[in-house]
Design a protein around this nucleic acid. Structure first.
Length: 589
RNA sequence: GGGCUCAUAGCUCAGCGGAUAGAGCAACGGCCUUCUAAGCCGUGGGUCGGGGGUUCGAUUCCCUCUGGGCUCACCA
């Protein structure tokens, strides 16, 4: 029997077992063979396949002949987990014993529970994930959704793999813009409006400032002067800055709470500001700094990158110097294994420069810094623009989605005659509506630009967040009925589980089996969509099973117990998978 | 102009060098006296941007061209 590790580790590896069987028959190294063992495009062709084409040259035989010969070497009982081995063309196809396979998968998924796919391989290796990082006093719009949702999922994935995780929100809470806000608030600020809706009020006076500054350049000077005083930590300026920051954070927190997102560290730009002089000194001491056009720069010609500006010609710091200081501080504070930046693709060059400067300065940790970029969120016909007022607040988007969900819930409740309370309807609408938005950002690879469309965002048909959540709710509904009749997933015996040999059941089992691998691949590539697809696949396979087979009215008690167990395993996988994407599961919808 | 990135069905996108290129949406046709129809089943739909090359085999790797997007010093 194949060794089996229900926690999703490397134990239950049929590919490896097959490679070992092939190794004894061909004399080739098992790990080399494992690399070429693949999964056929159609399950009817088998569960695994070994292409014999590469052997043709060394064996001086036609691939189909090699496949046929190898197949003959696999007599019945070559391995207990194999039902049969068949040569088709140049391929050697392996069929797993379905009942053994499905039964083993279901048993182990149920045993793993919410630890499905979890490992402790990351123990002692801290992963820092920097994400969201909004600017204080600016609207939190859909453009911020990508980094926030993506980063949240990555943090959860790393934690699932055993890494200590530090979730960092690198707030944009410093700079001349605060001088502007201080000037603008003293001139035109509205106390009541600030208390009521801080960001809208701050945005209003910020826009007002720019309008007025066109006719009155002295405003810009005043703003610079106030920022200098802020840097000197004068009480008056510091108090206003602190207030703007606190009020903004409180508003951000509302959105974060709704999405189940939290941070361990809110050290933003202001925090690193006093750590920059030491960095400049260090670069100077290492002879890396150079003056050019009045600015202090580090040349990166040998890295084939444009020079990195560390100090502006007026001596002020710039975001590159802040980010360099941040890496060094984080290394000292957390001793990170990986320092991950979930920041849009347009900043790719910036991070290359920052990492290159650190490398030149001799810091090995530069190689542990990773920029995880992603595409822009834009409208079909134009860019998202704060200035043009073309923003959709993330809150508004969530509200729309929740409202749409609520309509569907009410309609369905009437149709089905269910007894959902007002409180439950509200709770479910909130979770499903928000899950739909989160899912939309995790459905595809992160590199592509995401064209925002209300229509698509609020379409809950097909492969969407609500689809996966609906499937879970449906499966839970079956289990509740089973429980009411005294049956539970854990009741199934090995003999019962041997009944899971049908096409639909095997398809579900295959996808459940791939769960752990999907989690690891998603983390390795920093691509949560790899897990999203696995979750969607499990949901689709279960729906197909659900529509074609009876669970509670199965033909016999053994099959019924087995199918209840399978349904339980699907619930475990869906809830765990959605959780890793940052999406809540609901019991009814 | 340099760099990065993308180009696959009408639309949005998957596709670790391997079998007949897949999914969802949209379109069309079916399925609620039986476990939730936000579901399931079926049909149609493709010169994988163009051209070379490597390979037993290329949507996948290399080169080149075309066309988008982002970026290239004092905003982040």
């Amino acid at each position: 029997m194949v060794s089996w590790d229900g926690n999703g580790g490397d134990g239950m590896d049929f590919r490896k077992s097959i490679a070992e069987l092939l190794s004894t028959r061909t004399g080739l190294a098992a790990d080399v063979l494992a690399a070429s063992v693949e999964v056929p495009p159609d399950p009817a062709l088998g569960d695994y396949a070994f292409p014999c084409f590469p052997l043709a040259k060394t064996l001086r035989k036609a691939p189909p002949a090699i496949a046929a010969e190898l197949a003959a070497g696999f007599s019945d009982g070559a391995a207990p987990f194999l039902a049969r081995v068949q040569a088709v063309g140049g391929y050697l196809n392996f069929f797993l014993d379905r009942a053994v396979f499905a039964g083993a998968v279901v048993r182990d998924v149920l045993a793993a529970g919410e630890r499905l796919g979890a490992t402790d391989e990351g123990a002692g290796r801290t992963a820092i994930v920097e994400y969201s990082s909004p600017n204080i006093a600016k609207p939190f719009h859909v453009g911020h959704a990508f980094t926030t949702i993506l980063g949240n999922s990555l943090a959860r994935l790393y934690a699932h793999l055993g890494h200590p995780v530090v979730r960092m929100n690198h707030l944009g809470d410093y700079g001349t813009q605060f001088g502007k806000l201080i000037v603008a608030f003293e001139k035109w600020g509205d106390e009541a409006a600030l208390e009521k809706d801080a960001i809208r009020e701050l945005l209003r006076i910020y826009v007002k400032f720019h309008d007025e500054a066109k006719d009155d350049p002295s405003l810009e000077d005043a703003a610079r002067a106030r920022f200098v005083r802020l840097e000197e930590r004068r009480p008056e300026e510091l108090a206003l800055w602190q207030r703007f920051r606190d009020l903004s954070l409180a508003e951000f927190a509302r959105v974060y709470d709704r999405m189940g997102i939290a941070f361990d560290d809110y050290s933003g730009e202001s925090f690193y500001s006093d750590k920059i002089p030491a960095v400049v000194e260090m670069l100077q001491a290492k002879g890396l700094l150079e003056e050019s056009e009045g600015a202090q720069i580090v040349r990166l010609d040998d890295e084939k990158l444009p020079p990195c500006i560390v100090l502006k010609s007026d001596g002020a710091t710039i975001y590159a110097s802040r980010d360099i200081a941040a890496v060094l501080w984080r290394k000292e504070r957390y001793g990170f294994w990986k320092n991950i930046y979930v920041v849009g693709n347009p900043q790719s060059l910036h991070f290359q420069q920052v990492f290159a400067v650190l490398r030149k300065a001799g810091y090995a940790c530069a190689d542990d810094c990773v920029h995880v970029g992603f595409g822009l969120v834009k409208f079909a016909d134009r860019k998202l623009s704060t200035r043009a007022g073309d923003v959709i607040f993330l809150d508004e988007l969530l509200d729309e989605s929740v409202a749409k969900t609520r309509e569907i819930i009410d309609r369905n409740a009437e149709l089905r005659g269910t007894d959902m309370s007002e409180a439950e309807r509200a709770d479910v609408a909130e979770k499903v509506g928000i899950g739909a938005v989160q899912y939309a950002f995790l459905r595809n690879g992160r590199d592509r630009d995401l064209v925002f469309s209300w229509e698509e965002m609020l379409d809950f048909d097909g492969e969407t967040g609500p689809y996966a959540m609906y499937t879970y709710a449906r499966a839970r509904s079956v289990l509740r009925k089973a429980e009411a009749e005294g049956a539970a997933p854990a009741d199934a015996s090995d003999a019962d589980l041997a009944r899971l040999g049908g096409d639909e059941e095997a398809a579900v089992a295959r996808l459940l089996y791939g769960f752990g691998d999907a989690v690891r691949r998603a983390a390795d590539a920093n691509e949560p969509y790899l897990l999203t697809r696995q979750v969607a696949g499990i949901a689709r396979a279960f729906n197909k099973f659900y529509n074609n087979q009876s669970i509670l009215s199965a033909p016999d008690p053994e099959t019924r117990r087995a199918r209840i167990a399978l349904t339980g395993a699907v619930c475990v996988a869906l809830k765990t998978g959605l959780g890793l994407l940052g999406i809540a599961a609901v019991e009814r919808m």
